[in-house]
Design a protein around this nucleic acid. Structure first.
Length: 280
DNA sequence: AGGGAGTCCTGCAGGC
DNA sequence: TGCCTGCAGGACTCCC
């Protein structure tokens, strides 16, 4: 069983969990145990957070944005193995991948754990958050009403590469990753190898709702399993989700009775899963 | 400018 | 049993 990587639905699920644990709370203590993540923490990171109140826990694409009471924002990315563990302090020694420990003023402890250290945390001014280097080039939120078939096909015009690769580009639409791209293309009946620019008109009108549905259903699945995470040692943000094609090479296609079943190919060094008959 | 390859990092699966 | 290799992923940098 493959655990879900943090794409938009997983980050959204983490956001909802952190809202319950952190919103309205002050940081009583912040400890950085390992500063060398994907990019260095800003100077005095822990000091600047200590005593601050979390006004709102929000999200932009795969980034968590914690708005603080001093006009600054704690920006976080889970990379591909990042987790937020919500619980209470205990006597167990910290794990080797527990990189940041947040203690709130009501006694909770939130641990940012990231074995592969592809995640990051930064501080940004709320007033200019959209201009932050990590956020300024991000495309539209896929679940936003502004993300329409017309917007998507306009962004795809002139792209000669395959649609699969284009959808992974966060400048085009922000929040999809390798798993949900395969799932959305399967649902839309569009081949991952199709030229990106040819996804327009009818195909774009199928793809956009497929993206929204796949993400919405995954969020709903994460949100419902979140209720099981009330335990003190509960881990936020991951859920078992049955994918239609992802990591199912050789399985029967869930949408037709073709002989080949789910196929796996590699595009730009990344696995793609699809049904050759159902998707064109 | 678009697109591809290489890079970071660790855990895990598979082969022998 | 244990070692060794390869693979997984997000997103940046460095080419062409």
């Amino acid at each position: 069983m493959l655990s879900a990587m943090p794409e938009l639905p997983e980050v959204e699920t983490v956001r909802r969990g952190l809202t319950m644990a952190m919103e309205g709370r002050r940081f009583a203590a912040v400890t950085v145990r390992r500063p060398d993540l994907r990019r260095p923490f800003p100077p005095d990171f822990a000091l600047r957070l200590t005593g601050r109140r979390v006004v709102e826990v929000a999200r932009r694409a795969k980034y968590l944005t914690l708005f603080l009471d001093d006009g600054w924002v704690l920006l976080g990315h889970l990379g591909m193995s990042g987790r937020m563990l919500v619980g209470w302090p205990d006597t167990a020694p910290p794990g080797k991948h527990d990189h940041v420990i947040f203690d709130t003023d009501d006694g909770r402890r939130i641990i940012f754990q990231d074995p592969r250290r592809f995640g990051l945390m930064d501080l940004a001014e709320a007033a200019s958050l959209a201009e932050h280097p990590l956020l300024k080039d991000l495309g539209p939120e896929p679940l936003d009403e502004a993300f329409t078939p017309a917007v998507l096909s306009a962004a795809l015009a002139g792209r000669s590469g395959p649609i699969k690769t284009a959808l992974l580009d966060q400048k085009l639409v922000a929040g999809l990753g390798n798993i949900y791209v395969s799932e959305a293309l399967f649902r839309a009946g569009i081949s991952p190898e199709r030229a990106a620019a040819s996804v327009a008109g009818r195909r774009a009108r199928r793809l956009v709702p497929a993206i929204k549905a796949v993400l919405t259903e995954a969020i709903a699945a994460g949100g419902s399993s979140l209720r099981d995470h009330r335990r003190p040692d509960g881990e936020l943000g991951y859920f078992q989700h049955a994918f239609a094609v992802y990591d199912r090479e050789g399985d029967p296609c869930p949408g037709c009775d073709c002989a080949t079943g789910v196929r796996r190919i590699v595009q730009s060094g990344r696995s793609t899963f699809f049904c050759h008959k159902r998707q064109s």
